[in-house]
Design a protein around this nucleic acid. Structure first.
Length: 765
DNA sequence: CCGATGCCGTACATG
DNA sequence: ACGGCATCGG
């Protein structure tokens, strides 16, 4: 493939329409390696899609020669659609996916070469933890200070650095007993995964690199195939991902009699100011040293911002300027200064949440859609007060990544069955379901089975087929045999049956669904519904992927991420962590919990580079906003059951004061510190003080934790009510039906509020 | 083997 | 505050 376009695109080619000179160059540049430094909101997705579309449209590449790596599955799907919109069916056959999805695809194809079966299981964090727990217990490693999380963290870092067990054995300091034990833990963990025909998340990348290095002819298949490799969010790649990119873009080994291939062209897009994944091994040097790593590379800087107002950009610029070891970059826009940033200091997380809810309602009244509003938090625990207030205020919301649907016990149980059908070597999955639903196989029985499996060197599943040899009672023997038969019979259908049919068969025949359905416990009823929901999801998967096998379904679920859950059109406000927010944008953004110990997080302040990394997180949050930015904090916050005083985040003081309009005490957020608790006047709309004077403790958590139920309370326009926080008011409108009935109430002191009648802490007067 | 009780760690971010 | 899980009694 020539490095010059075969047919130079005409200047008026619609693919180039509306691009600024730098963007245009980023679309058209042809060479071995290109770094696009894309500031926040600089139109990089547009550039990336047009670059790919150009390669196709101008006949420089076939779709199958393109590999584009995005940060999320959702971003991949969107990029695919956008390229398709530009060039149509010509785009079929491209690989656009995340690192993990691309690697799993390669590994399943090449499973034999790497000594695994095609049906390998992908362990999620909980699976890895369960396995590690057994190993640490077995080795008594907890007595010398090993924890499950600690050991997994060490191993994860080793894998991200492409250090395998042998490599670690060579380099570890064996005179240190802890290192020696860690080696043994690493060895056993690796062996257990192998035996189970399973990989953890880190293995997915590392094993692909090992595969390519061990089998140059396998690597060459992909090196010849992919002529253009593009990587988005390059600042958040770790060493293993970097090595993978190097392998993919290396010139393939020459094959006698065949023409030689150059290495593929590489385009990376990123912004070191948005690097926020150091904790999982992301190495900012990958992007900072790109020019050194890839000689003769071209660097194009995109600084014009098409997303935010100048006020928002000014705030972002002045915050990030405090990170000293960065290349100067200044975002600018031509849209004008826009609204000021709104600041609010609340008394508690609930007070802060009430501010957010009230502002959201104002935005809504002014014509905003809930979809265009997002609330960002640093930690997942911050979502709780927001949820409580949103429910009470009848604000529809979603928490991408917060549902944890796939982490529910009953859902994991269902997956235990599915995995055992797909991958009988996976002992962990079998142990999970051995006695679920209860079938009389207790720990003692399980230990006997485990011992037999180990004696014979077979997977636990084999023992199910020969239960009689265990010499146990007739009842338990029959239970074991039945389970084995169930799994074997369903497994026999796996080649032809759709995932949802396999799932239904397992749920029905195991009695798992019926056990929950018939238990009489309302919580079990909800669990049964979750299983039904899972069946629906499996059906939906089959609709989206008519050829999708059970293994495909399991892969899909394993690699499903928080950001993939975001639905831009479902009419709800999104509450998410700052990490999940990366790459997204909203008209209105609420940055909450801007407090010391939260942002920067207390765990980060002692880490090298921690303060700078947290500042980037703040920067990412600010730059998500298009038109309106709200920053808020609370002077006290509940954690672990009690309440702690909190101080404003140091980063707030890095925003020029004139850009922020504080809605509370009138001072800056920085000065309003915890002195402000007493100094601030109790504003009618946000202060939680009800009409009568109250004790100090009562303004911290005015919300009843348990959900109220007003039953069939009905309200009509004109009714007078009393609310525990807002006082007395008059109903001005009623909308919605049944449990979703919403009353709009004009309170005497607290202003107008929308309340979900069923659960609001109100009484009719 | 199963359910009840009480204690302990949890919660920094994620594929 | 809450759930997971270890320990105990039935």
């Amino acid at each position: 493939m020539s490095s010059v376009p075969l047919l130079p695109p005409p200047d008026d080619d619609p693919l180039l329409a509306g691009l600024n000179p730098q963007q245009r160059e980023a679309v058209l540049y042809r060479g071995q390696s290109l770094l696009i430094v894309a500031g926040a909101g600089s139109g990089k997705t547009s550039v990336l899609t047009r670059r790919i579309a150009g390669l196709l449209k101008w006949r420089e590449a076939w779709p199958s020669q393109i590999l584009a790596i995005t940060f999320t599955n959702k971003a991949a799907a969107e990029m695919r659609e956008r390229v398709r919109a530009l060039v149509g069916d010509e785009s079929d056959g491209m690989w656009i996916s995340t690192f993990h999805s691309a690697c799993v695809r390669i590994l399943r194809r090449q499973a034999e070469a790497m000594g695994m079966k095609q049906s390998f299981t992908i362990y999620d964090t909980a699976d890895s933890r369960a396995l590690m727990k057994r190993i640490i217990k077995e080795l008594d490693a907890d007595t010398i200070g090993f924890t499950v999380g600690g050991a997994l963290g060490r191993i994860s870092r080793l894998k991200n650095e492409l250090t395998d067990v042998d490599g670690f054995a060579r380099n570890a300091n064996m005179s240190d007993p802890k290192e020696a034990v860690l080696l043994e833990i690493f060895r056993q963990y690796t062996a257990a995964l192998r035996r189970a025909n399973a990989l953890d998340f880190d293995d997915i990348i590392a094993e692909t690199v090992y595969l390519f290095r061990a089998f140059p002819e396998v690597a060459a298949l992909y090196q010849r195939r992919f002529r253009h490799v593009l990587v988005d969010e390059y600042q958040d790649t770790n060493h293993a991902q970097y090595a993978l990119v190097r392998e993919l873009t290396r010139a393939p080994v020459a094959v006698p009699g065949q023409s030689a291939f150059d290495g593929a062209s590489l385009t990376v897009v990123g912004d070191s100011d948005q690097s926020i994944y150091a904790f999982r091994g992301a190495d900012i040097r990958n992007i900072v040293e790109f020019e050194r790593d890839f000689p003769n590379s071209k660097v194009i800087l995109l600084e014009q911002n098409y997303r935010s107002t100048q006020n928002i950009l000014d705030a972002a610029n002045s915050v990030i300027a405090n990170n000293f070891d960065r290349k100067a970059k200044n975002l600018f826009t031509v849209v004008g200064s826009g609204d000021k940033i709104i600041g609010y200091t609340g008394y508690s997380g609930h007070d802060e949440a009430q501010f957010v809810a009230d502002e959201i309602e104002k935005l809504r009244d002014a014509g905003s859609s809930y979809n265009d509003i997002a609330v960002f938090v640093r930690t997942n625990s911050q979502t709780r007060p927001l949820e409580e207030i949103f429910i009470r205020s009848a604000i529809p919301y979603r928490i991408p990544g917060g549902t944890k649907f796939y982490e529910r016990a009953e859902v994991k149980d269902a997956f235990g069955y599915l995995i055992q059908v797909a991958n009988p070597d996976d002992d962990l999955a079998l142990r999970r379901i051995m006695n679920v639903p209860k079938r009389g196989i207790g720990p003692a029985t399980e230990a006997a089975m485990q011992a037999m499996a180990e004696r014979q060197g077979v997977p636990l599943r084999e023992v199910l087929r020969d239960a009689a040899s265990l010499g146990l009672g007739p009842k338990v023997t029959a239970a074991i045999t039945d389970l084995g038969e169930l799994l074997d019979e369903v497994a026999a259908t796996v080649a032809t049956a759709a995932p949802h049919d396999i799932l239904t068969a397992l749920l029905t025949r195991s009695g798992l669904h019926a056990a929950l359905k018939n238990s009489g416990d309302p919580q079990d009823e909800a669990r049964a519904e979750n299983l039904e929901e899972l069946v629906s999801q499996a059906k939906e998967f089959r609709v989206q992927n008519p050829e999708g096998t059970l293994v495909d379904f399991l892969t899909n679920v394993a690699l499903f991420s928080a950001a993939d859950e975001i639905d831009d059109h479902d009419g709800s406000v999104s509450i998410m962590t700052l990490h999940t927010a990366k790459g997204l944008e909203y008209d209105s953004v609420f940055l909450t919990g801007l407090e010391e110990d939260l942002l920067p997080h207390r765990m980060s302040v002692n880490e090298t580079g921690g303060i700078a990394e947290e500042r980037r997180l703040f920067y990412v949050g600010i730059t998500r906003a298009r038109k309106r930015l709200f920053v808020s904090l609370a002077t006290s916050r509940a954690s672990f059951g009690d309440v702690a005083v909190s101080m404003p985040s140091r980063y707030l003081a890095e925003i020029p004061g004139e850009l922020i309009e504080w809605r509370d005490s009138g001072g800056s957020g920085f000065r309003s510190g915890f002195r402000g608790v007493r100094a601030a006047p109790m504003r009618e709309s946000y202060g939680q003080l009800p009409p009568a004077p109250r004790q100090k403790t009562e303004w911290t958590t005015p919300i009843t934790a348990k959900v109220r139920d007003n039953g069939d309370l009905t309200l009509a326009v004109g009714d007078r009510i009393r609310h525990t926080d807002f006082g007395e008011g008059r109903v001005s409108a009623v909308t919605g039906v049944g449990p979703k009935t919403v009353a709009e109430v004009q309170f005497e002191t607290a202003g107008r509020k929308r309340l979900l009648v069923k659960i609001a802490p109100i009484e009719k007067l």
